[in-house]
Design a protein around this nucleic acid. Sequence first.
DNA 1: TAAAACCCTACCGTTTTTGTCAAGTATTAT
DNA 2: ATAATACTTGACAAAAACGGTAGGGTTTTA
Lengths: 159, 159
Amino acid sequence: MLRLSTKGQYGVRAMYEIARGYPATPVTIKEISERQDVSVAYLEQILNKLRKAGLIKSIRGPGGGYILNRSADKISIASILNELEGPVALTSCLEPEGGCVRIDSCVTHLLWKALGEQVEAFLKTITLKNLMAGDFYALGGTAKKEMRRPVRLKPQSQP
Amino acid sequence: MLRLSTKGQYGVRAMYEIARGYPATPVTIKEISERQDVSVAYLEQILNKLRKAGLIKSIRGPGGGYILNRSADKISIASILNELEGPVALTSCLEPEGGCVRIDSCVTHLLWKALGEQVEAFLKTITLKNLMAGDFYALGGTAKKEMRRPVRLKPQSQP
DNA sequence: TAAAACCCTACCGTTTTTGTCAAGTATTAT
DNA sequence: ATAATACTTGACAAAAACGGTAGGGTTTTA
C-alpha cells in the first residue's frame, strides 16, 4: 500500500544529482539520465515541474544544465514531492479542493488526516543535504527502536 | 500523493461498524452497506479478505452477520490495511519479493524504507477501539504541535 | 550559424482501481 | 421440509492512473 509514483522517486534522485553540482557546475539532463538510469524525455517533464516550482533553475545553451535555486539544506524532500505529486492526501476528502460530503459522520477522516500530517512532517525534516551527507543512515540503524513508537496519543487504557 | 485505495478506506469503516456490534450482535453486510454507503457486492470482497485473515468471523443464516474475531483493542488499523492492500511499500524495491537491482547505489532506498516504517508504526499504534472511543481526536487538536516534529534524526548542522 | 541544451504538448499502451454480476452454498426460523 | 436470510466465490468490465514515448519547438553560446 501507499506506493510512491516513479515521478516522485526519479524527481528526488534527479535533485540529488543536481545538488552534487551545486553551486558551481550545471548538471545536464543527459548526465542525470545516465547516472540514475531514467530516460531523458521523462526527466524533462519532471525537471520542468521542479523548475517552475522554483526549486532549480536551468541554464540554456552549450555548457548549460540545471542547478539548485537554493542550497541543499534548504530543499526538503517534501518540497520536491509536493511539486511532482501534489500534497499528501490519503483520501479524496483530504485533497485541497475538498469535496467530502460526509465529513462530520466520517469516523476515519481525522485518522487519515493525522497520518498525512505525520508523513508530511517527516518529509519536511529531511533535506537534500541529509540525503547527500548520509546522516540519514541513523534512521535505519540506531533510531530504529525509537521509531517504533512515534505517535503521541493520549495514553490508552490497555492492561 | 500517497493515496489510500477505497478498499482500504471502506475496510476500516466496515470494521468500525462490525466493532460496534461486538461482542453480542452480528452485523450484516446490508447494514454496513447502508451505514457506510458502500455497495453490498464490493463489501463482500472486502470482508471476505478480512475474514480469511482472521480479523472477523461470519455467522451464516438468518440472524447472522459478521463479528470481530478478537476485541477491538487488539485490532490495529495496520492489520486491516495490510490485509487489503499489502504491506507499506513506497517503492517496488521495498516489496517483500524485492527485486531491486541497484540497492547499493540507490541513495533514496533508506529514505523510503524509513518513511514506510514510520507509517507502519503509526498505524500499528491505533486500534479500532481508539477509533470508536474518539480518544483519537487528540491528534487533530492538542497533539498537533507535537506532531510537527515526529522524526528522530541526528541533530542537523543547520544554523 | 550550428550545435548544445532546455522547453512543451500530445498521445498511447499497460496496469491498477473500482466496482458489478451471476451463480452458488450454508444456516435457521417456521 | 423449506423458504428466507445471509454469506461465498469467481469472472469480468469500465474508468482512471501510471509510466512513459514521440516529435516538434526555442534559446544560448562557442
